[in-house]
């Protein structure tokens, strides 16, 4: 008996299992494309935030004087967002290749298209100001994000080298009082020599980055340069004051 005849016999005897319904196939395909769209969106946003951090002129400015370009690059490299973008990119490539017709395209083209797409979308989102909002939202909604940003922040908080960052508590014409991320309160003295960018109008609550005289013993410094905190740090929530043991 041929296979066709055996097949027909099964139909007549009612032994043939029912095929997977069309709506399930359609739903599975739709779910796959929706998932791909979500992955691409998240990946683009992450790439956008990463690019936004890395193109921050403040992050690579001379405030970290003496650091090599490699150090400066690594300081500006937002590993969290880079890893998320890479993971999303990898996932998007896998999903696309596994889709019904994805195999028709060469892997190298798919990977290139993914990279270019992520960067282009990311750049568009960053230039639309979305990256700043996402960074702020991440601080507000992801508890671990604060911890992930700490290594970047620590690069900028070296009082014995004259680098301090903190949030402005009070201010007048000749001094600022700031609270650093560890909770320490610093008096920052200003004078005519203190260099502040023209466009930067310091306000209470702003995160500022000070380059001043080296200090490791008392919470006072004479500021030479004051800049806004770099991207990725400026939304860091204020820390509580340190507990003093008696």
């Amino acid at each position: 008996m041929s296979i066709a005849e055996q097949f027909e016999q099964k139909i007549n005897q009612g032994d043939l299992p029912k095929p997977v319904p069309k709506f399930l196939v359609t739903a599975a395909r739709a779910a796959l494309w929706i998932f791909l769209a979500l992955v691409v969106s998240l990946g683009s946003l992450s790439a956008g935030v990463a690019a936004w951090f890395m193109t921050d002129p403040v992050a690579l400015s001379g405030a970290a004087a003496g650091a090599s370009w490699v150090d400066l690059f690594l300081q500006a490299l937002p590993m969290f967002w880079v890893v998320i973008a890479l993971l999303c990119g990898f996932l998007a490539i896998i999903i696309f290749i596994k889709s019904a017709r994805g195999y028709k395209y060469r892997r190298v083209y798919v990977v290139t298209a993914c990279l270019v797409g992520f960067l282009a979308l990311g750049a568009a989102l960053a230039s639309a100001g979305v990256s700043d909002t996402i960074d702020k939202m991440a601080y507000e909604n992801i508890p671990q994000y604060n911890g992930l940003s700490k290594p970047r922040m620590l690069h900028l908080m070296k009082p014995d080298s004259g680098f301090i960052i903190g949030r402005v508590q009070t201010m007048d014409g000749s001094r600022l009082v700031i609270r650093d991320p560890g909770g320490g309160v610093w008096e920052v003295r200003l004078d005519r020599e203190t260099n502040i960018p023209v466009h930067f109008k310091i306000q209470i609550g702003d995160c500022v980055r000070i380059l001043g005289d080296a200090s490791s013993t008392i919470f006072t410094t004479d500021a030479r340069d004051i800049k806004p905190c770099p991207r990725g740090i400026r939304h860091m929530p204020p820390q509580p004051p340190p507990v003093i043991e008696r």
């Binding site: 296979i3 097949f7 043939l16 299992p17 095929p19 997977v20 069309k22 399930l24 196939v25 019904a100």
Partner: peptide, 20 residues
């Protein structure tokens, strides 16, 4: 080979809705 083919046809029939 006939056994394999029979299984292949059954697979195809079960997933006929996913044929593009």
């Amino acid at each position: 080979a006939e056994d394999v083919l029979q299984e292949a046809f059954m697979d195809a029939y079960r997933h006929i809705a996913s044929f593009d």
